[in-house]
Simulated assay, not measured.
Amino acid sequence: MTAALGILALLGSGVTAGVLFAVALSVLPALFAMPTSTYVYAHQLLGRNWDPTMPAVVVGSTLADALWAVLGGGAVRAPAAAAAVLLLGVSGVSHLCNVPINRRVKAVEDPLRLPADWTDPRPLWRRWHLLRTALAATALLLNSVAALSG
């Protein structure tokens, strides 16, 4: 049972860190290079499949880590527990910071006619995204330590 939890925690934190890293490395620079109207259109398209999938992966990984910390005990407990906290942080940053920005961008009906009060969300979205990427990468590192310790 604990081995399966470790595998799930490693897999989930690896997918989370990998997806967030790929977005930071490639998608964000591309979005910043676009004119605002093109960015809004692209952002609306990009978010369609992330939203139902990534929250489930992050929450599932968090639960796997928490259970692994409790049931694994010993040298696994501290790194797995810390990884669970970091993944909870990824979820918190996503839901409290990035998702509200995503909703604002998705609410734009015509990217060629932006609302008068429009402010470009890309710099703020990037800052929050880089924070959650760092949290996810650190969680993956801690899960690797836990797996090697167990």
Rank of each mutant, 00 (worst) to 15 (best):
L11Q: 10
R48D: 07
L45Q: 13
W118G: 12
F32L: 06
S149P: 05
I7M: 14
H43S: 12
V19F: 13
V19C: 11
L5E: 15
L28W: 01
G92Q: 02
F21W: 11
R126C: 01
G92S: 02
A84D: 11
A116S: 15
L67M: 03
G47F: 09
A139H: 14
A4I: 10
A81K: 04
W68E: 03
S37V: 02
A83C: 12
L8K: 03
L10Q: 07
A56Q: 09
W118Q: 14
Q44E: 07
S26L: 04
G47V: 10
I7G: 09
S144L: 14
D51W: 14
S94Y: 10
T36V: 12
S61D: 04
R132S: 07
H95I: 06
V57I: 11
L28P: 02
G92C: 00
L135N: 13
S149I: 00
F21R: 15
V90N: 04
R132E: 08
T36D: 08
T16C: 13
M54L: 13
G74H: 01
T53Y: 15
S37R: 11
L28R: 00
V108Q: 00
P29I: 01
T36C: 08
D120T: 09
A30R: 11
V27H: 01
A17N: 00
L63C: 01
L124T: 04
S61L: 01
F21V: 12
N102E: 15
R122S: 05
A139W: 11
S91K: 00
A4T: 12
A4D: 07
V15N: 10
R48K: 14
L142N: 05
H129P: 01
A147L: 10
V19N: 08
L71N: 02
Y41T: 12
L124N: 02
S61G: 07
T119M: 13
G12W: 14
V90K: 03
L25D: 06
T133Y: 12
L28M: 05
T62L: 06
L131E: 08
P55G: 07
L88K: 09
A9G: 07
G14W: 12
M34W: 13
L11Y: 14
S149V: 00
L25S: 00
P79K: 11
L11S: 08
A84H: 14
A84V: 11
L114M: 06
P121E: 05
Y39E: 03
V15E: 08
L67W: 07
N98S: 02
R113T: 09
A24E: 03
A78C: 05
A134P: 06
A136F: 10
E109Y: 03
S149L: 05
F21M: 15
L148Q: 12
A136C: 15
D120A: 05
V76K: 10
A116T: 13
L86S: 15
G73V: 04
L63V: 04
W128Q: 04
A66W: 05
P115H: 09
L142F: 11
T138H: 10
V105P: 00
S149Q: 07
H95S: 12
G14P: 07
G47C: 07
L25W: 02
P121R: 04
T133E: 11
R132G: 08
N143I: 06
M34L: 14
V23I: 13
A81E: 08
S61M: 01
L131Y: 12
A30M: 10
P35I: 01
S144R: 14
